[in-house]
């Protein structure tokens, strides 16, 4: 599904440059649920951004579902992001003047779907995250957990191959975090490939595999026994 070979990335800081990723090798199979861990500055967010085509690597290979991702124009990157990837952010990143269903329908708008199809699909995904009754509410009228569920519905709307989550529970309390994790696990059970950045051990243990980064290299890459989140809910 995802193949990364010798990925390097550095950022210029003043006259010198900061070497953030120093040759990452990573393979993710379809249906996996991977947690990328590391302290701040370890390069985990940069790695996720490159996988999400929000940033570009300096050197190395990145192949997504057999498609080499290199030297993309902005237009092409936009199309790929729309087709292949679903994003879940720590701060939800909902558009504040659009209600829940409009937020979920946005990726479908950029896919060029007709209004009616968009509405139906968006409603279907909102039902799936259990927020059908909140479809007409603005983000400010929703709780943190509800916002994140809207964001997950939005990430799912375009039916992406890969879900990328950047600290999806970072802004939530423990109970809500486990609810969200239970939901993400359920998505994984249904076959979705999920890649998640986190620095919380308990959250990482709810994935099936943990990749630990330090100073731009992979320190450890191991399969774990998944802790089911339902038991805490």
């Amino acid at each position: 599904m995802l193949k990364i070979h010798q990925l390097q990335k550095s950022y210029p800081i003043g006259d010198s440059s900061l070497h953030v990723l120093k040759g990452i090798d990573l393979n993710v199979e379809e249906g996996e649920m991977v947690a990328i861990m590391g302290s701040s500055g370890s390069g985990k967010s940069t790695l996720l951004n490159i996988i999400g085509m929000l940033d570009e690597a300096d050197s190395g290979e990145y192949i997504l579902d057999g498609l080499p991702i290199k030297d993309l124009t902005e237009k092409k990157a936009a199309v790929y992001r729309n087709k292949f990837l679903g994003f879940i952010f720590q701060s939800f990143n909902l558009i504040n003047y659009k209600n829940a269903i409009e937020n979920v329908a946005l990726p479908l708008y950029y896919q060029g779907l007709k209004r009616k199809e968009r509405q139906e699909l968006a409603m279907f995904h909102l039902e799936k995250v259990g927020l059908a009754n909140w479809a007409k509410h603005l983000p400010k009228e929703l709780s943190g957990g509800q916002k994140q569920r809207v964001a997950i519905a939005r990430a799912l709307a375009a039916n992406p191959k890969l879900l990328l989550a950047d600290e999806p529970t970072g802004a939530l309390d423990t109970k809500t975090s486990y609810e969200i994790m239970a939901f993400i696990q359920q998505l994984n059970d249904e076959g979705k490939t999920i890649l998640m950045v986190t620095h919380e051990e308990d959250i990482a243990n709810m994935c099936k595999r943990i990749v630990r980064l330090r100073d731009g290299v992979i320190m450890e890459d191991k399969k774990v026994n998944q802790v089911r989140a339902e038991q805490y809910v």
Binding site: R81, N82, K83, L106
Partner: peptide, 16 residues
């Protein structure tokens, strides 16, 4: 800026 960033992440082309 943030909204535009979100739109782009969701697949908005520069032209749109």
């Amino acid at each position: 800026t943030k909204e535009i960033g979100i739109r782009k992440a969701l697949g908005a082309s520069p032209r749109s």
